[in-house]
Design a protein around this nucleic acid. Structure first.
Length: 264
DNA sequence: ATGACCTAACTTTTAGGA
């Protein structure tokens, strides 16, 4: 079973790239963030033709998350808790249950939070992450399985960017934000990339500005976190960095992992 | 190089992103 995640920065103008990724990696499941459209504008037919069902929580022009699932997988849709996790509605959270394996799949687009000096934006991110942490607490002492993936907009480790000092006053590297993210890890969630790569080896985002890609000045902010009962089943994790160098790229690249002992 | 961007929208500028 292949699970993938991609901040696509508009799903509607990225069909060609998505097709390329699906043909290359053949994911059973694809998490998308920043689809930047309402449900009614989502390209359901494009995914239908590739044999995927889509579960979408959209929003006009901004944010928006979706999960594409191969049609042979049985799914239950979990409650839409965006309003619980967001003070006001922002489409940043979608959760489904893989029925045959009883695994919850949670796709998140964590708020950016900049500028730090804007209390409204920064505190919104703080509250959002705290709410996410609350939600996760129920998984830690239970037997439930959870895969939490997406764009976390957090630099977990000071090696996840070239010069962390430049990011300490940014909402991605701010002490308050990094601390909450580490508290989430501290609950027992395992960050899958750390099983396969050392901090500093991989990035998942390169800004469109300042020739960030050409200078390999990237960030690692896209992740899969899993409950401990899944760690030993994950035998591969990759970041498709080359997708940043293709025409009309998203500023993020896809990440994916392979889970063993779970039927296709 | 102290750096030149991209997307959606009641579009010809602006807000938001990271």
């Amino acid at each position: 079973m292949i699970l993938s995640s991609w901040n696509i920065n508009s799903v509607r103008i990225r069909e060609e790239l998505i097709l390329r990724f699906i043909n290359k990696v053949k994911p059973n499941i694809l998490f998308l963030q920043e689809i930047k459209c309402e449900e009614g504008q989502f390209p359901y037919l494009f995914f239908e033709n590739l044999n995927y069902d889509c579960f979408v929580i959209g929003q006009k022009a901004r944010n928006g998350v979706a999960i594409a699932v191969k049609k042979d997988l049985k799914i239950n849709i979990c409650e839409n808790i965006n309003k619980k996790i967001n003070a006001d509605f922002q489409a940043r959270f979608i959760m489904i249950n893989l029925v045959d394996h009883d695994i919850d799949l949670c796709n998140v687009y964590v708020p950016n939070g900049n500028p730090v000096t804007d209390d409204k934006k920064f505190e919104y991110k703080v509250e959002w992450l705290k709410n996410l942490k609350c939600l996760l607490e129920s998984y830690i002492f239970g037997e439930k399985k959870l895969i939490l993936g997406g764009d976390f907009n957090v630099l977990e480790n000071f090696k996840d960017v070239k010069n962390f000092n430049e990011w300490k006053n940014d909402a991605l590297g701010h002490k308050k934000i990094v601390s909450i993210f580490r508290e989430i890890i501290g609950l027992g969630m395992f960050n899958v990339i750390r099983k396969f790569f050392l901090p500093g080896e991989k990035f998942s985002f390169w800004d469109y500005q300042k020739a960030a890609w050409e200078r390999n000045d990237g960030l690692l902010i896209d992740h899969f976190l899993v409950t401990p009962n899944l760690i030993d089943k994950i035998n591969k994790f990759e970041i498709c960095s080359n997708f940043r160098g293709l025409p009309k790229p998203s500023d993020h690249v896809p990440i994916w992992m392979k889970i063993d002992q779970i039927s296709e």
